[in-house]
Design a protein around this nucleic acid. Structure first.
Lengths: 394, 394
DNA sequence: ATGGGCTTCTGAACCGGTCAAGTAGTACGA
DNA sequence: TCGTACTACTTGACCGGTTCAGAAGCCCAT
């Protein structure tokens, strides 16, 4: 009784007649004191209702927070609908669980100017996912000083980046259609800008795209169209503010209503593709006989769709895992016994050794012992299912 | 140059010839210094690459972590499959976003003896979801000293609890079947114990159930059976280790293969119910003509199922929101202008006022100004769809 | 006896901020 | 001319641990 303030390690030490250090050791370094005394201390602590050293005080001294921070492009309630995000989360959580680290989802509007939440959070590292180019949050994350890995964002000098070969995957997807004989191909895009716009994408919006994924995939599509001798700019692009079935439906209605109806649609996500297929069904256009549809990501829904969706598979979970591992392996870690990752091993992403992995545009430094390579592109793979076929003779 | 250590607020102050306090104020209390000086400080900070006060040091002094901790019954990769968890997460995130708080997912096996992760995490409050009775994690959470709210767990004296009326909902579900004329009713249960067991539930497992939800729902089912003059113990109970379609399928196969095939199944979750329906389809048993199936939770899948699932709706998102609000409103907060919650308002869960809401078994204290009531039961509602019908005359 | 090596425990500095109280300096009203 | 009030800034304690460099005691070989 008496003092109303919480019990501290010091109080406990005093009441036991030992030093703070010893009590501290009882909790954190059992080998530094006799088993006897330790038992006595723990017992007294328990009896007094002392739950152990204050985590924040400990963090301050040890400089470790025991958690990774994750910055998402949308608020969590929204993001949980997005299979790409949940898969990514699983991958990150895999890595966190291995190390018994917490996963802290950083609050706040992502393209908002207020970045307090990012500088105010106690984490050992930050992962930023699919932030728009130039986002204030990204700046704050960089300045924050903790190890940072960005996923699906434009390369920034000095910032470790994890992505997949979006452009290559998109190119494969488009080549697939071109190879089947399609010449009237429309594109349904992920957002180029974080402004909520849905509608035909103007060339200006595309040129100044702030979302890397949309830009890269579009570039890949156009690569293939150009290869085939077509004018890439002829393919109409319908931009959707989010990746969801409803907007895909809207895009599909728009594109299928055009006079020179496309014979194939390249959608930048499975959800959009599924929406497009729904629009086709609505208009009694058969997929794939009268319309081929290609998605992206190869989420579960793609295989379940009817017809099953041709799409581009990307290793989403691995992407999350790799990002987390890159942060966790970044600082010290003498690379000793490789007992860390049971099972999975980030393909080509094991830090160190092959700095040849770095393909950064602006050659990132003089190749010296720069801790880790700073760009990792995971492979993608075209998965051909039943939603694509040769166009009918017209 | 020189010192290799990170720049601190003190360094900055020294280099500017002002006091630490003033620099601190420049960041955290703009009104405490002249705009001029503030601008100069911020500029110098920016130039020096100082990202703002160290969050951990700040936390130590202010005793606020800016984050809520969430303890889940399973690891995150697993939990993300579970619609009940994601809905709950949304609700919690809603509340966190309102207050710009982070959401920290606490790592570690939930029924594991190692609770370090819980005492080592920097949070302003903890939410524990559906932990088994007697879990070490729960103990640790209680001892931790921060505000704690448990969801879907047995009432514990002094611990704020948020649940829904599981028993009442289950009772309604069973009454519905009884009312339709069913007499041979089987039950497919959520786990009673965290031991991974799947199979017929022995009476011993049920009596010592460690998961409150399963126990409460079973009790509700049995209430209704008893009301109808049936022996509640006659209804076979098949326990599933997790709530998923595959185990529901397994349960269905088991129950439908019995000599005295049930005419109806009460499943403790929609996913289990959907699995049971799949088993029926497999055995060419028509739902609802030859078998009625009732789920629980009313997740999205229930409405989408074919036939659409009769189920018990519970406000999952609200449950999460309410839990978070109870934590956030727990300590100070002078209840001034109610500008806090835009839109939503926890029905019956606004702290303060009606302490009559408290129905705790062990009268929680002498009714004095005990900050908040400590039990909140949200309502549930039976939703009748197409998966239930009267049994055929046999 | 002497001294090295161990185990066990202590004292004071430190982690990087925030807070309450206090000191100047200036303005205002009587 | 003084008291009051307010603004702009400073001082020193404090948040609750951990860490590093010893000190004290003990065992054992030399």
């Amino acid at each position: 009784m008496g003092s109303r303030s919480r019990l501290t390690l010091g109080d406990l030490a005093a009441s036991l007649g030992v030093s703070k250090t010893t009590v501290s050791n009882a909790f954190s370094r059992p080998d530094q004191l006799s088993a006897d005394l330790r038992a006595r201390i723990l017992e007294a602590a328990y009896a007094a209702g002392y739950a152990g050293p204050d985590p924040v005080a400990r963090m301050l001294r040890t400089r470790r927070a025991g958690a990774l921070g994750l910055i998402l492009p949308e608020s969590l309630p929204f993001s949980l609908d997005e299979p790409t995000v949940t898969e990514l989360l699983r991958g990150i959580a895999d890595a966190c669980d291995e190390r018994r680290l917490g996963l802290l989802i950083v609050p706040g509007g992502r393209d908002a100017p207020d970045t307090r939440s990012i500088s105010d959070v106690a984490v050992d590292g930050l992962i930023a996912y699919s932030l728009p180019h130039g986002a204030a949050a990204l700046d704050a994350a960089i300045r924050r000083g903790v190890p940072l890995v960005v996923i699906d964002q434009p390369r920034l000098p000095g910032v470790t980046t994890v992505s997949v070969d979006d452009r290559g995957g998109a190119r494969e997807a488009a080549r697939h259609l071109v190879g089947l004989g399609h010449r009237r191909i429309a594109i349904v895009g992920l957002p180029f800008h974080p402004d909520g716009y849905t509608g035909p994408a103007t060339e200006a919006r595309i040129d100044e795209a702030r979302f890397d994924v949309a830009a890269a995939r579009l570039a890949g599509y156009r690569d293939a169209l150009a290869e085939a001798g077509m004018d890439p700019d002829d393919a109409p692009v319908f931009e959707c503010a989010h990746s969801d079935e409803d907007l895909g439906l809207e895009a599909g209605r728009h594109l299928l209503g055009r006079p020179d109806r496309p014979t194939a649609v390249l959608a930048m996500s499975d959800r959009l593709a599924i929406g497009v297929a729904a629009a086709a069904r609505e208009a009694r256009i058969d997929v794939p006989r009268d319309l081929s549809v290609v998605g992206f990501n190869d989420t579960e829904a793609a295989a379940r769709a009817r017809p099953a969706l041709t799409t581009v598979r990307q290793p989403l979970r691995l992407k999350g895992y790799a990002a987390a591992r890159l942060i966790l392996d970044a600082p010290a870690e003498s690379e000793g016994a490789a007992t860390s990752a049971p099972g999975a091993s980030v393909s080509g992403a094991e830090a160190g050794s092959s700095a040849s992995e770095a393909v950064g545009p602006a050659g990132s430094g003089a190749g010296g012992p720069r801790a880790a390579a700073d760009e990792f592109d995971l492979p993608v793979e075209l998965v051909v299912r039943r939603s694509t076929a040769a166009p009918r003779r017209s």
